[in-house]
Design a binder for these strands. Structure first.
Lengths: 342, 342
DNA sequence: GTTAGCACTCCTCGCATGTGAGTGCTAACA
DNA sequence: TGTTAGCACTCACATGCGAGGAGTGCTAAC
């Protein structure tokens, strides 16, 4: 069967109308709204074809039609034209102030996106491929306690408090700091070999134990960043869409969003690597979300810092708006980071 | 009207039965389950009295009874006996590992509590009354960039990256650190006067600007802790209770839980300061939770560190279990912190 | 003070009916 | 051959009715 331009127009009309109303669309409605100058009967014939092709479906006989997953897929792949972001969308909405923690910025962004799109959002914290130790600083805090600050590439800062038995003098501390920094700065986990460790410990003399603790902390810090946190926002927006709010669907989705680890598969790369990836219904590798669509985008910055951000909504979500908003947000995010990096 | 012991027993039976089933309780059921050797008719007479006293109510005529807010209030105030925690509740459930961030521990605890009780939980991050600056450390990180680590009482660590125009030599940095620590350590916000600030700036000479930035950061750090973050967990548990899951109630509650700032009023102290505080229905100062009950507990540790934790569930929540679990959790938390402090 | 008996209330469920939206099909038309 | 009008048909949904049942409220007897 051929998908001629009129069929496309009708599919388009069905999707757009269903996006707005959430109700099955009848032939009469399309005849009026599509712009095509044909009668409902003609539309019905075409709809019958579209149904045969698996692009639309009826919830029950004698009801209007709603798009199927395949219909949406066709729409986003071939028919969707990207909107230009209207100029009045004040970009300084997301004015990024001097934030000390990247995580806070990301959470803020998730919230903003949820608010703007009226869908749920999720963000992975940044990961740092080739994560390196940039700088380390031990300071005396209390008696017998050291504060260790570990800075990784991408200016991620981790704090650790070390409970060393004894008090160190200023000179000893200075020597220890020099020792650690001289030997470790700029190295990734793979580059810190046992030989190196032994050598440092050797040189540290009586402070070998402290060196061990510090190395453990470094390993833990780098490790923690390799399976980054997932943040979500706007989960309650799900309730705004009747097709999700009814039954157990909403509660399952909300549970999944709370159990953030279960969202990881959604972010997994699948073959082709694009800026924007759209998953519809069963394409989502999370059972509870088979009635949803997910749009994800990658952010990638200097220093190998990268992560993902996703928007979760009903299948009838406004894909154009979501894609446009996401692209714009990515742009702003990159800008902000660039400024921060240089 | 007198509330004799039999009436109490009946109210008790109604509440317990309603806690289990969520269905209105009839006189026949009570007659069987209460242990009282009286007929349903007698129970009915007593129930009629209880209704007059405003302790129970009927959803509609010719239906069983459910407790009113006042009924619950009476129950928790006078009739509830606290259970001893069964010994088999393995306490090491909440084995607290060396966590660098208190926040993470709290979030973990919230999750655990939500999981154990099957209600929603919320936790405020710790606040530090009489928050003092304990220690400050500037280090060179990149060219023209300083890493400032600020430690407050209670070992809260804040990181800031300062963008200073120039590079400082090691000696200059050392001098600056000494200057700041000698003058500021142990002081609270109120004690850092303009006179003091001027004096320090004066002494810092060409680094007066850096001192300003650092002071700003200190102020921000202390400020940030005075309105601490609120974490929630287990929000989807709400769906397990039909009286909350139906209608808009669930969605409103979930929204409130996501909008964490709106939870602050719940934690506000009201007059008498107890370890455990129970709010029922309209007593909760948040509109969307008028169908819920909230049990809050305070944790308070050395160094003026304190915060609150709350459990949100339906009015028919198992108050004994919640109170017992909360007390036990507080105990463990205090223990963990003590170990951490000493 | 307690109990049995009984009428009464009101929710719930199943069933039949009516209505309306929307289709599918056929036949006529361009 | 594509398009259209007309019409019967389907099915969800709302409404109304009646039976069943849980549970009360009241009265009278114990």
């Amino acid at each position: 069967m051929e998908l001629d331009s009129r069929k496309k127009a009708i599919l388009n009309a069905i999707i757009r109308n269903y996006q707005e109303t959430g109700e099955p669309v009848g032939s009469r409605t399309i005849s009026k709204l599509s712009g095509l100058q044909v009668s409902p009967a003609t539309i019905r014939n075409e709809m019958s074809d579209l149904r045969e092709m698996g692009l639309i479906a009826q919830p029950h006989t004698s009801a209007g039609c709603i798009p199927t997953d395949r219909g949406y897929r066709l729409y986003v792949d071939e028919m969707m034209e990207e909107r230009q972001l209207p100029a009045d969308t004040s970009r300084d909405d997301m004015l990024i102030k001097r934030v000390d923690r990247v995580e806070e910025l990301l959470m803020h962004m998730a919230k903003l996106l949820a608010c703007n799109t009226k869908y749920a959002t999720m963000v992975t914290g940044p990961t740092y491929s080739a994560n390196k130790l940039k700088f380390i600083q031990l300071s005396r805090m209390d008696e017998g306690k050291l504060l260790g600050v570990i800075v990784l590439s991408g200016n991620v800062v981790r704090n650790n408090i070390f409970d060393v038995g004894k008090d160190l003098s200023d000179e000893e501390l200075l020597r220890l700091n020099l020792l650690l920094n001289n030997n470790l700065n700029g190295l990734s986990m793979d580059e810190i070999t046992l030989a190196l460790i032994t050598r440092i410990k050797d040189e540290a003399g009586e402070f070998g134990d402290i060196v061990s603790s510090v190395l453990d902390a470094i390993a833990a810090s780098i490790e923690a960043d390799s399976s980054p946190k997932v943040y979500t926002s706007g989960a309650p927006n799900i309730f705004m869409y009747p097709e999700l709010a009814g039954g157990d669907t909403a509660s399952e989705i909300i549970s999944t969003l709370e159990e953030k680890d279960s969202l990881r598969p959604v972010f997994a790369d699948r073959g082709e690597h694009h800026d924007i990836q759209i998953l519809i219904g069963d394409e989502i590798p999370v059972e509870s979300m088979k009635d949803c669509s997910v749009v994800t985008a990658s952010y990638e910055l200097e220093g190998g810092v990268h992560g993902k951000i996703g928007i979760i909504g009903p299948k009838r979500m406004n894909y154009e708006k979501v894609v446009t908003t996401l692209k714009d947000t990515m742009f702003q995010l990159n800008e902000a980071f660039k400024k921060d990096e240089e």
